[in-house]
Design a binder for these strands. Structure first.
Length: 570
RNA sequence: CGGGGCGUGGCGCAGCCUGGUAGCGCGCCUGCUUUUGGAGCAGGAAGUCGGAGGGUCAAAUCCUCUCGCCCCGACCA
């Protein structure tokens, strides 16, 4: 009964949705489903977060539930308002709405503190004066048990007093921590008396200097989930080892709501990195131009690149959710944008690398306005007029003086169609005497083929895009390729430093492109298909009325490139 | 010599709980339609389910063992 794993329909069933379906069936949590997306505001969201967002908001929506957006802001040193704003706008852009369910762990600092007090009163937490280094030593190793802290048996009263003094700033940063009293010989190191609170005099982006102690992830996350009434706390695999601690804290505190933590494998995408730490490094070392560089796998980068939110959602639905580590091929992401853009992007003609074409037998002063479809996939998108005249530009690679097998574009003596215009025949290629470079083409046109069809039924193998030289407008076009040269730059077997895998040719800027006049005034962010080339969008940062700048979102599927590669291999 | 996970066509997943010789998407191949070498439609190749045993009439599905990969030793999340 599971639905096909289509890229356009509902996501197929996965183990998490199965668990939730069973819980609903068993009327657990009164049949309610409440999830949450809990980013730490210490960086920008990337495509991996999109998977989590789609999962959490998606599951809530499918089950008539709720999904909270909660900022896990317990480490003020690394967090900032800039990040919370970017995260909010990215989630919104992706198409999800948290309504009034916007929360911050910092909203719970007082409650969390009281929970800690409760734990102390139960004799389940203590203030430990060991230094960070000492704690590490006492913790033992993977194969050896740890040692008990000499402060482990302080009285409840003493701990209560000490903890309050931690809060009121009586100790220096790092002087002591509050620890859970669990089991120093547990095979799970997370259970060897983990730190719950640390002293840190850093002002917080929301609470300012109100606090000098901050709760650790393990303590705050489960309790925040509980406070919000989360039913299913979905997180990534690396937290699997933390689950016993998640459950321990909620059990000890006897809270009314004890969410079920479920872990899934994070997304890995080929030819890029999906790790906040690595992305920060790329930004800070200037390997890219900021978080929204169109080559970045950040949502802001992907958005600037021209991807649609719908295509990202379809992508997330089609990759599935499981527990095994895997590497999703970037080609699938590209497929989902093409699939989406093919339906909605208006077609337009733009020549990236212009080659002048003179139609010898076309009247010097004539200009015809030819009708062109805005989208052959959707006649409802209407038509537009494109000017045609004696001097045109076509793509350099659409002409070949000595065409190889299967090349069926323009060549000396060969006839081809100019889209929506006429059949033209190349009569002569003019070369630069010194470089041998082809400078311009002389062609003739067949007036009877106006519109692109010959009344005698004559066929041509190729249809080329073109622009009228006099009417076309200048544009800058930025072509992008994979940010990295290797499938998995994070693989230490590939390179010690992932930055060594950076693709030096990940961006190529073309400044002399010629676009059809209808593109004048194109709005930032608007997306087009440049016929035969790919999908492009107006850059939202650098484009202006006086200077159009386009980003190539993705090329069209290119069979000719494939044939050429096959021919090279023999 | 610790603990926790995972292993199904090239890639990503479903199926496993309630055994009956494997399914989907992408990719790949062929043909047809087509004024984007785009797109659509039709068809096709490709896996014996990490490996080995065991019980069963019958296992990817149950049991045992084994191999491989990932995660855990921040006062990060």
């Amino acid at each position: 009964m599971s639905k096909p794993n289509s890229t356009t329909s509902e996501p197929s069933s996965d183990f998490i949705r199965n668990i939730i379906a069973e819980d609903i069936k068993a009327n657990k949590n009164d049949g309610k489903v409440i999830t949450r997306f809990p980013p730490e505001p210490n960086g920008y969201l990337h495509i991996g977060h999109a998977k989590s967002i789609c999962l959490n908001f998606g599951i809530a929506a499918e089950n008539n539930g709720i999904c909270n957006l909660r900022f896990d802001d317990t480490n003020p040193g690394k967090e900032a308002t800039e990040y919370v704003e970017s995260i909010k706008s990215d989630v919104r852009w992706l198409g999800f709405d948290w309504n009034d369910r916007l929360f911050y762990t910092s909203d719970y600092f007082e409650q969390l503190y009281q929970f800690a007090v409760q734990l102390i009163k139960k004799g389940k937490a203590y203030v430990c004066d060991l230094s960070a280094e000492e704690i590490r030593k006492y913790r033992g190793t993977l194969t050896e048990p740890g040692k008990k802290s000499p402060f482990r048996n302080r009285s409840v009263e003493e701990n209560l007093d000490l903890f309050e003094r931690m809060r009121t700033g009586k100790f220096e940063d790092g002087f002591c921590v509050l620890r859970a009293k669990i089991d120093m010989s547990s095979p799970n190191l997370n259970m060897r008396d983990p730190a719950l609170y640390r002293i840190r005099r850093v002002s917080h982006h929301r609470t300012g200097d109100k606090w000098c102690i901050y709760p650790m992830y393990d303590f705050s996350h489960c309790l925040s989930d509980s406070i919000e009434g989360i039913t299913h706390s979905i997180c990534t695999l690396e937290f699997e080892n933390n689950r016993p601690l998640y459950d321990w804290i909620l059990d000890e505190l006897e809270v009314e709501c004890h969410p079920r933590q479920i872990e899934f494998a994070r997304l890995n995408l080929s030819y890029t990195v999906v790790s906040k730490r690595k992305l920060i490094e790329l930004v800070e070392n200037g390997h890219v131009n900021g978080w929204d560089d169109p080559r970045m796998p950040t949502l802001s980068g992907i958005r600037r690149r021209g991807y649609t939110p719908e295509s990202i959602r379809n992508f997330c639905d089609s990759i599935g959710v499981a527990k095994r580590d895997s590497m999703v091929d970037m080609a699938l992401l590209e497929y989902t944008v093409r699939e989406n853009l093919n339906k909605i992007a208006p077609r337009v003609m733009t020549v990236l690398r212009p080659l002048k074409v003179i139609i010898d037998n076309y009247p010097e002063d004539l200009v015809e306005e030819l009708e062109a479809l805005n989208n052959p996939e959707d006649p409802g998108m209407g038509t537009r007029k494109v000017p045609f005249s004696r001097v045109l530009y076509i793509e350099q690679e659409d002409f070949c003086e000595d065409p190889p097998k299967k090349f069926f574009r323009l060549a000396p003596g060969r006839e081809a169609r100019l889209r929506y215009a006429y059949f033209i025949t190349c009569v002569k290629a003019v070369k630069d005497e010194k470089t041998g470079e082809i400078v311009e083409l002389h062609c003739t046109y067949d007036p009877k083929t106006k519109g692109g069809d010959s009344p005698d039924g004559r066929k041509v193998k190729a249809t080329l895009h073109w622009v009228s030289a006099a009417h076309s407008i200048e544009a800058e076009v930025r072509l992008y390729d994979h940010l990295f040269n290797t499938v998995n730059p994070s693989d230490k077997k590939q390179a010690e430093d992932f930055k060594d895998c950076l693709n030096p040719n990940s961006r190529e800027t073309l400044t002399l492109c010629r676009a059809e006049p209808s593109l004048a005034g194109a709005l930032p962010g608007s997306r087009y298909q440049f016929e035969r080339l790919g999908y492009f969008c107006v850059d939202s940062v650098d484009s202006s009325e006086s200077k159009l700048v386009f980003n190539r979102t993705v090329t069209l599927r290119d069979t000719w490139v494939k044939i050429q590669k096959a021919q090279k291999k023999g």
